[in-house]
């Protein structure tokens, strides 16, 4: 399966990764090889086969609507790269 540099750059945009041109070129080659494994899947006869989304046959795993205490704000904010006394801070997002 051929993956082009342009595809890699488009996907990198979706994944929010910056790639240099030559990096994208290299990755296009490598990803092409890797999806080669997946290319084998094209050989399979999957007509009428249901997809498996979960490895265990569990369903309706719920919690009751009960309140639990939240975490102290200092702990919530503690790992924030930029924060003030109450919030995380990011560069201004324009709408």
């Amino acid at each position: 399966m051929e993956i082009t540099k342009e595809t890699v750059l488009k996907v990198a945009g979706l994944a929010k990764l910056n790639l240099a041109e030559e990096e994208a070129q290299r990755l296009a080659h490598e990803m092409g090889k890797i999806v080669g494994f997946a290319g084998k899947l094209a050989e399979m006869d999957l007509e009428g086969v249901q997809p498996t989304t979960h490895a265990v046959k569990l369903e309706n795993v719920f919690r009751a609507d009960e309140m639990q205490p939240s975490y102290p704000r200092e702990e919530i904010l503690a790992n924030g790269p930029e924060r003030d006394e109450a919030c995380f801070v990011v560069p201004k997002v324009v709408e």
Partner: peptide, 15 residues
């Protein structure tokens, strides 16, 4: 469909 969905179906057959 070509990758993720096929992989999930292959998963069913492997199981």
């Amino acid at each position: 469909d070509a990758y993720y969905l096929r992989a999930q179906k292959a998963r069913t057959l492997i199981i």
